[in-house]
């Protein structure tokens, strides 16, 4: 591995040499390790803590063409009081909306401590000019977004034009100002685990504060092995550069079991340092209700039903 990372991005050749010099991913090994960690049994008090931690890590997301200001306000209310009948339920980490609805979300969440994240850069495809992308980012930040979820240019990445991807992330990072930048790799379109590892390093080298698996619009989304590879990348990146980067799996995490598996993966791969909403997030919409149902089951001793939680 290159000793000085400063000039890695000086040209496409050096960047390519570096990224392709990363050790390859053992696909079978990664799948098996993720599957093995997924069999861990988390029960009773540990499960109760895991559920609360998972709720605190949720980025409650609505990214539909049909989103209305009313729907965003309702979701923000849920973000602050996930279960109105139980004040002991913690708040979620953030809500995630489209840029034009950031203002509504900021207004609804004022003073609550829940952050507002906005997707940007022609989400979900990322197919537009850099100007449009930076303008959209600046628009979301001006509206009050605390975090920006950008998508990388998968077309350029797959074509081997790593510098283009790199420079785009740098430009968006600059447009973010004080806002945190999450870089969506859209692993479902990257074909191989090797590409996931390369894209992770590329995003971190370019200055991303978080790396995020998916937009949620492409299947497969946040699988366990892909999350494992990204966690290994942030661990190695910290060891190499001293900078800590967060990870956000998003899309396809629907049950408490899925979420707890993710937490086990974090603990076993990068350790407790990442077991906090500052460093690990779960992008989800339906997951929250399942977490609440499991929480209620643990509190009351009987299985909960979806009739008693909000439809969203």
């Amino acid at each position: 591995m290159t000793t000085s990372l400063a000039d890695v991005a000086s040209s496409n050749v050096t960047l390519r040499t570096f990224l392709h010099g990363l050790p390859g991913v053992d696909r079978v090994g990664a799948d098996q390790r993720a599957a093995m960690l997924g069999t861990r049994s988390i029960k009773t008090t540990a499960k109760a803590e895991a559920i609360d931690l998972a709720i605190r890590m949720v980025d409650l997301t609505t990214l539909e063409g049909a989103d209305t200001p009313g729907k965003v306000r309702a979701m923000c209310a849920k973000a602050v009081h996930p279960d109105p009948g139980d004040p002991s339920v913690p708040k979620v980490a953030a809500v995630c909306v489209y840029p034009d609805l950031v203002a509504q979300a900021v207004d609804a969440l004022k003073g609550s401590g829940v952050k507002v994240a906005s997707v940007a850069t022609s989400f979900p495809s990322g197919r537009s000019s850099l100007d449009v992308k930076t303008t959209e980012t600046a628009f979301a930040v001006a509206a009050g977004a605390d975090e920006i979820d950008m998508v990388i240019d998968r077309g350029a990445f797959l074509a081997g034009d790593y510098v283009k991807v790199f420079e785009e992330i740098v430009a968006i990072k600059a447009a973010c100002g004080a806002a945190h930048l999450k870089v969506i790799l859209e692993t479902g379109e990257l074909s191989t685990y090797d590409n996931v590892r390369r894209a992770s390093w590329l995003a971190m080298l370019a200055g991303g504060d978080f790396i995020k698996t998916s937009t949620g619009k492409v299947q497969p989304a946040a699988t366990l092995p892909v999350t494992l590879i990204m966690l290994e990348a942030v661990r190695d990146f910290l060891a190499t550069t001293g900078r800590k980067v967060g990870v956000k799996p998003a899309g396809g995490i629907r049950t408490t079991k899925d979420a707890v598996k993710m937490l086990v993966l974090v603990n076993e791969t990068v350790g407790e340092g990442w077991l906090s909403p500052d460093w690990f997030r779960l992008g989800a919409s339906t997951l929250l209700n399942d977490l609440l149902m499991q929480r209620q089951k643990m509190a009351t001793g009987r299985y909960a039903g979806p009739d008693y939680f909000t439809l969203d």
């Binding site: 009987r302 299985y303 909960a304 039903g305 979806p306 009739d307």
Partner: peptide, 9 residues
């Protein structure tokens, strides 16, 4: 008893 207590039954 679990089915009798289940809130979705």
């Amino acid at each position: 008893p679990w089915l009798a207590a289940h809130m979705d039954v």
